[in-house]
Write a protein that binds this DNA or RNA. Structure first.
Length: 614
RNA sequence: GCGCCCGUAGCUCAGGUGGAUAGAGCGCUGGCCUCCGAAGCCAGAGGCCGCAGGUUCAAAUCCUGCCGGGCGUACCA
C-alpha cells in the first residue's frame, strides 16, 4: 500500500539522519508530492532539519541524498534545499493502484476523527421567499464540508434552521390577504415558495407606493422629507396590519395560525423540491417557531442567577466587555425576544439533542460580529460547550450589477438557475448523441438524456460555487456559471465518463484492471505523463486531509481539476486500448481505473455526481 | 470614526502555517478529430503580485503606514 511505502521512506530517512549527524532530535518529517515530475515523485524540504542541525538546508539535502538507499527508491537527488525522491516505478504504480482500488479501505478517506461528532447547520432559509443563488452557495458549501468531515471520520449531523416566524412571513401573509385572496399555488400553477415570494414582493411594492404618496404629501405640506420613513412606520395601514398579524400570531390566534401554517406548507413543498434537485437532505430540521421561547426562558433563568442584568427601562442585557464586545440586549424592554434570543435557545437545543464535539454554523460573513456576540454570550452564560462552536464564514454573493436585494426581487432564483443550466446541458447531450464515435449503449430515450443532463447541470453549478475560496465574496456571472468547458464541473465529469468508456471497452475485450500485475503491467508504465498522473494520485489523501482540516472545498475542486488535466494529457498522447503491448495495456488500464475512483470520490466530496456517460 | 475582510495577467481566480523558474480558466492568436468520446489536447502573446517602508539567508505570503474596495458596528431579521 502506498501509505506503507511512504512510512518506510520516512523511517529510512530518520535512520540516515541519525547516522549522519549523530543523536539529534529529529523533527517530524513530511514527504510532499514533488512540484514537477522531472524532479521526482516525493519531496522533503530540509528547512525544519536545518533549524535543528544548524546547517545550510542545501548541505543537508546533499548529505542525505548520497546515503538514502532503499529498494523502492530509484533515485534520490538534492536540488537546492530539497531532497527529491523518485520511486521505483513498478513499486509506485502497483501500490498506488492497489490502494486506490482497495475494496475495503477507501483510498484517501481516514478515520482520524472516529468517534467525534460534528453538527453542521446550513441553508437556514426564511419562509417568505424562494431560495436564490446566495442560499445555493451556502447549501453547496455546507454539504461539501459535511462530506469532507465525514471523509476524515467524523460523525456528521446535517442540520437546518428554518426561520418560519417573524415579521417577514407576516408581510407575505398580509399581502396574500390583500392581493391574492383565495389563491393557491395550484390555482396559479406555481411552486409554493415562488407564490409566497410573489406575495412578499407585492408587499414591498405596495409599501413603496404608499411611501411615494406620503412623500408627495409631505412635500406639499412643507414637512421635512427626511421623516418619511418614520411617518410611514406609524401611519401606514399596511405596516399596522402586519404588526397586528405578528401580535395575533404570538397570541396563538387560530385564524392567523391557520394562514401561517398553510403558507409555510406551500413554502416547504417548494423548498423540498429545490433540495431534491440539489441532492441535499438534512438529518434534523429546526423551526424557529418551536424553539424561540426556549431562549427567553434561558435568559430569564440567567437573570435569576445574576449572570445577566436588567436595565432601568426593563430590558435585559449581558455585559460582554471582558470580550471587548460591550453590552448586548437579550430581551427588549417590552419583554419580547430578539433574534439572538432564539439563537441562544437553538444552541442549547442542539447541545441537548446531539452534544457534538464541534458545532459549525455556515453563515455569511455579514454576520461575523453577531456570531462573535452569540458565542461570547453563551460562554458567559456558563455553557462550557460553547468552546466547540465555530462560525464558517463565507463571502456574500454579488451580481454583476451589485448586491442581491431580495426585497426588490433583484435575485437569481435557484430553480431558474437549475432550469437554465439543465436546458443547456440537455442540448449539449443531444448534440453529443448525434455525433459519431461514442459507445452509448443503445438509443437513450428522453428520460435517460434528462437524467444525464441533470447530473451535468448540477455538477456545473456546484463546482462554480465551490471552486472559489469560500472566505471571499464572489460575483455571480450568469454566463460563467453555465459554462461546460475549462475549469468546470463538467470538465472533471467528462474525464470520468471518458475513463468509464475505456473501461467498458476493455471489459468487452475481456480485460480488467486487476490483471495488471499478472500481465506485468506495472513494469510497462513509467513515461512522464504516467508518472505525472501517479504523482497527483499520490497527493489525494493529503488533499482530503487538508481540505477537511481547513474546511475548504475549493482545495478539493482545485485538486480534481489538476488530476483530470493530467489524465487528459496522458491519454491524449498514450492510447490505453491501442497500446503497443498487452502489458502496457494492462498497466494503463489499471492507472486509469485508479484515477477514476479518485475522481469519483473527490467529486462526491463536493456533492457532485460522477456520470458513467455524458 | 472604530472593527473584520480583500487588492496577483484584459476578465474571474489559485498560490496550506515565508522557501525550488509566480500558476489556471476565460478571452485573444495559431495548430490537432481516417487515431480509446474535440464537454478534449498542444503552442503563443499577456504580470514593478495596489503603493511605500521594514523584518529575514529567503516575502505575493509576516509587520507598519498610505491608497482603493467590501461588510459590519440595532431593544432589525
Amino acid at each position: 500500500m502506498i501509505e506503507a511505502l511512504k512510512q518506510e521512506i520516512i523511517r529510512a530517512l530518520h535512520e540516515v539522519i541519525l547516522e549522519t549527524y549523530g543523536d539529534v532530535p529529529v523533527p517530524r518529517l513530511s514527504l510532499e508530492p514533488a512540484p514537477r515530475v522531472e524532479l521526482g515523485d516525493l519531496s522533503l524540504g530540509t528547512f525544519p532539519l536545518a533549524k535543528v542541525l544548524r546547517r545550510a538546508p542545501a548541505r543537508i539535502a546533499a548529505d542525505l541524498a548520497g546515503r538514502l538507499k532503499l529498494d523502492c527508491v530509484e533515485e534520490v537527488k538534492a536540488t537546492g534545499p530539497y531532497l527529491n525522491i523518485r520511486l521505483h516505478g513498478p513499486t509506485l504504480f502497483k501500490s498506488l493502484v492497489a490502494s486506490a482500488l482497495h475494496p475495503d479501505r477507501p483510498y484517501g478517506l481516514s478515520d482520524a476523527h472516529r468517534g467525534q461528532r460534528v453538527l453542521v447547520e446550513f441553508s437556514s432559509p426564511n419562509t417568505n421567499k424562494p431560495l436564490h443563488i446566495g442560499h445555493v452557495r451556502n447549501i453547496v458549501l455546507g454539504w461539501s464540508i459535511c462530506r469532507l468531515l465525514e471523509a476524515v471520520g467524523y460523525d456528521v449531523i446535517k442540520a437546518c434552521l428554518v426561520n418560519d416566524r417573524g415579521i417577514h412571513i407576516c408581510k407575505s401573509m398580509t399581502a396574500y390577504r390583500h392581493f391574492f385572496p383565495g389563491q393557491t399555488p395550484e390555482s396559479r400553477g406555481q411552486k409554493g415558495d415562488h407564490f409566497v415570494g410573489d406575495c412578499y414582493l407585492a408587499y414591498g411594492k405596495a409599501l413603496a407606493a404608499e411611501r411615494d404618496a406620503l412623500a408627495a404629501r409631505l412635500e406639499q405640506e412643507g414637512a421635512d422629507p427626511a421623516t418619511v420613513d418614520e411617518r410611514l412606520e406609524s401611519e401606514s395601514a399596511l405596516v399596522r396590519e402586519t404588526r397586528d398579524m405578528l401580535r395575533r400570531w404570538e397570541a396563538g390566534d387560530p385564524e392567523t395560525r391557520e394562514l401561517w401554517r398553510t403558507m409555510n406548507g406551500w413554502v416547504y413543498a417548494g423548498f423540498d423540491e429545490t433540495y431534491r434537485r440539489l441532492g441535499i437532505r438534512f438529518d434534523k430540521t429546526y423551526h424557529e417557531s418551536e424553539i424561540y421561547q426556549r431562549g427567553r426562558e434561558i435568559v430569564l433563568d440567567a437573570l435569576e442567577k445574576g449572570r445577566v442584568e436588567r436595565d432601568g427601562d426593563g430590558s435585559v442585557f449581558i455585559d460582554l466587555s471582558h470580550a471587548g464586545l460591550g453590552h448586548k440586549v437579550l430581551l427588549r424592554s417590552d419583554g419580547t425576544s430578539l433574534y439572538i434570543t432564539q439563537d441562544i435557545g437553538l444552541a442549547v437545543q442542539k447541545w441537548e439533542d446531539f452534544s457534538p464535539d464541534r458545532s459549525i454554523y455556515v453563515i455569511g460573513n455579514e454576520q461575523n460580529h453577531q456570531m462573535k456576540v452569540l458565542f461570547a454570550t453563551l460562554k458567559t452564560l456558563g455553557f462550557a460547550w460553547a468552546d466547540g462552536l465555530e462560525h464558517f464564514s463565507y463571502g456574500m454573493v454579488f451580481l454583476p450589477d451589485g448586491i442581491i436585494k431580495t426585497r426588490e426581487g433583484n435575485v437569481v432564483d435557484a430553480d431558474d438557475l437549475m432550469d437554465e443550466m439543465f436546458t443547456k446541458a440537455r442540448e449539449k447531450a443531444i448534440e453529443t448523441l448525434a455525433g459519431d464515435a461514442n459507445d452509448w449503449a443503445g438509443t437513450p430515450g428522453d428520460t435517460e438524456i434528462e437524467r444525464r443532463a441533470h447530473i451535468v447541470a448540477l455538477g456545473a453549478i456546484k463546482h462554480y460555487m465551490l471552486k472559489y475560496n469560500p472566505k471571499k465574496e464572489f460575483t455571480f456571472f450568469p454566463e460563467e456559471s453555465i459554462r461546460l468547458t475549462g475549469d468546470t464541473g463538467p470538465y472533471v465529469q467528462y474525464t470520468h465518463a471518458r475513463i468509464r468508456s475505456i473501461l467498458r471497452k476493455a471489459e468487452a475485450e475481456g480485460l480488467s484492471p486487476d490483471q495488471a500485475e499478472a500481465e506485468g503491467g506495472y513494469e510497462a508504465l513509467g513515461n512522464d505523463d504516467e508518472r505525472e498522473v501517479a504523482r497527483i494520485l499520490l497527493a489525494f489523501p493529503a488533499a482530503v486531509e487538508g481540505a477537511a482540516r481547513s474546511l475548504s472545498p475549493s482545495m478539493m475542486a482545485k485538486y480534481l481539476t489538476e488530476l483530470a488535466s493530467a489524465f487528459n494529457r496522458f491519454y491524449h498522447d498514450h492510447s490505453v486500448l491501442h497500446a503497443d503491448t498487452r502489458a502496457q495495456k494492462a498497466g494503463r488500464l489499471a492507472l486509469s481505473a485508479a484515477t477514476r475512483t479518485v475522481l469519483e470520490r473527490g467529486l462526491d466530496l463536493l456533492g457532485i455526481e460522477a456520470p458513467e456517460v455524458m
